[in-house]
Design a binder for these strands. Sequence first.
DNA 1: TTTACTGTCATAGTATATTATGACACTAAC
DNA 2: GTTAGTGTCATAATATACTATGACAGTAAA
Lengths: 125, 125
Amino acid sequence: MEFSDGKTIFIQIRDRLVDQILTGKLLPGDKIPSVRELAVDLEVNRNTVMRSYALMENEGIVDNKRGIGFFVSDHARERLIQDEKKFFLLEELPKLVHQAKVLKMVPADFKKLFDQLNENQNENK
Amino acid sequence: MEFSDGKTIFIQIRDRLVDQILTGKLLPGDKIPSVRELAVDLEVNRNTVMRSYALMENEGIVDNKRGIGFFVSDHARERLIQDEKKFFLLEELPKLVHQAKVLKMVPADFKKLFDQLNENQNENK
DNA sequence: TTTACTGTCATAGTATATTATGACACTAAC
DNA sequence: GTTAGTGTCATAATATACTATGACAGTAAA
């Protein structure tokens, strides 16, 4: 895995797993990779993965069964959609709007975004 | 100034100045705050501000006159708009699209964004 | 019980961002 | 020339993320 400079590694690992939960690649009850296994996979230290898992446990999106592993908690997805959507609309979107205005962007620049969102909406019909 | 955890401080200081250039609060030829002055203002070390300024100098958006200070370079704004717009469309927007789809967002969620962009477009007429 | 997984904890080392501080050099104005 | 501003450089100290590694404990299955 390539890590970007912006965020710390253990946050990026958390974000990666959150994405897998949101996209349904990880379902409630699923076992997530063991601390050691993921550490080897991502070429990262055990402790760093531990930190990601501890964070996710605090967020209530994974459960820990000692000696067995970590598992996606029952309402992880609903909780994430609610929390991340709120964060997105309140924190990220305002910054986005500001940046778009400053860069003199117009709606046409967002055509791709708009198209993909419409596809997404049609899938739900 | 309150610094977020995501990025390093010297990057956030750079972003702050870039924003002031993009919004026209800083114009070509304007002197930007001295290293020492801004350090006191932001309650940050001189060296940290120096690092921000060195970065901006490398980006070609400020010029350095030894013994006098740093000044916004002539085509800083055009260069920034070009570079940041490219970065925005190629790097940030794809992540945004992905996130929006994963969170099951629909165009209506972006009404505010588009309204403000339309205002912006009308201002330019 | 042994084996092979799991997580947990502690310790030490490295890299980097940031701070703190002093000293030096350039420039402009008095 | 003195003064007060500017940037520049070097050194040491601190905080934090990350690494490396070993040891210990819980769980499940052979």
